[in-house]
């Protein structure tokens, strides 16, 4: 590797990681004031555990992320199977467009469009009477499913088609083939897709802000409203907990995937 590439790699990673380390560092700062170091303290972590507002929002975010990820795996896996295994059918190019557009769609557009949909549903169908966890889950399921498609799709392409063909030749219906043959083989990528969807949903501020209702303030919404007012050490502590736990989960997943890959070869 040339020297230039090494330096840019090092500089790039420093740029990506130093801000996070500074954030973690200051979450242990006893002083409330800015960059002044007032000694080591875990005071802010203790305060978090007593903050009912934060605990409530975290619980709502967990529920939303759990349900959205589960929905996204179902929708996303079906969509990936359609794209990889179903060959040509009428409306295929529109379908692949529908599935990939949410990956890049600006969040404010997704957010406002779903809110207007829910408002009109309420008018014509009488549901949802009030926006809340259910509406956020529908919104998150849709945009995170697009990411699940990416993960599952790449696994399906790498997968040997002959097993599914054998199952079909032996008289299994597409449903039986799907549930008894395809799903068990792609299970690891379903787990990875679920985790990815969970994290994306847990992190989302903008779409949740549009589709939530009274009493369904998610954790990012609460953090945003706190951050808008001032930088506070308890947000540093909260952010540290989120960053560290997400990193641990991703690292564990990556090691798992790596081991899996090695076994196959």
């Amino acid at each position: 590797m040339s020297r230039f590439l090494k330096i840019s790699l090092f500089a790039g990673f420093s740029f990506l990681y130093i801000p996070i380390f500074i954030l973690i560092f200051y979450s242990f700062n006893a002083s409330k004031r800015g960059a002044v170091w007032g000694g080591f303290s875990t005071e802010w972590y203790g305060k978090l555990l007593q903050d009912q507002q934060i605990l409530d929002a975290a619980w709502i975010s967990f529920k939303v992320a759990f349900l959205s990820a589960s929905g996204a795996v179902i929708i996303g896996t079906l969509a990936a199977v359609v794209l990889v295994r179903m060959g040509k059918f009428r409306g295929r190019s529109m379908f692949s467009g529908l599935v990939s557009a949410p990956l890049v769609m600006p969040e404010v557009i997704t957010g406002i469009s779903l809110l207007l949909l829910f408002i009109s549903f309420k008018e014509f169908l009488g549901w949802p009477q009030q926006r809340g966890i259910a509406t956020i889950v529908i919104a998150h399921t849709t945009f995170t499913a697009a990411f699940v498609v990416l993960v599952v799709q790449s696994r399906l392409y790498a997968l040997d088609k002959s097993l599914e063909e054998a199952s079909a030749d032996l008289g299994a219906t597409p449903f039986e083939t799907f549930f008894y043959v395809t799903v068990p083989i792609i299970a690891p990528s379903l787990a990875a897709g679920w985790m990815l969807a969970f994290i994306l949903s847990f992190d989302d501020l903008v779409i949740a802000s549009f589709t939530s209702g009274p009493g369904s303030t998610t954790l990012p919404m609460l953090i945003y409203s706190k951050v808008k007012i001032a930088v506070s050490p308890d947000v540093n502590a909260l952010a540290t907990i989120i960053v560290v736990s997400i990193s641990l989960v991703i690292a564990a997943l990556a090691i798992f995937a790596f081991k899996n890959q090695k076994q196959e070869h």
Binding site: I20, I22, R33, G34, D203, V227, V231, I250
Partner: peptide, 26 residues
């Protein structure tokens, strides 16, 4: 993995980290 970790870490938190770095007493 080092590239993907920030990809998965909340955008809100990563942007928030810069407030502490950039503000006048940062």
């Amino acid at each position: 993995l080092l590239v993907m970790l920030p990809f998965f870490t909340s955008l809100l938190i990563r942007v928030y980290a810069w407030i502490g770095i950039l503000r006048t007493d940062g």
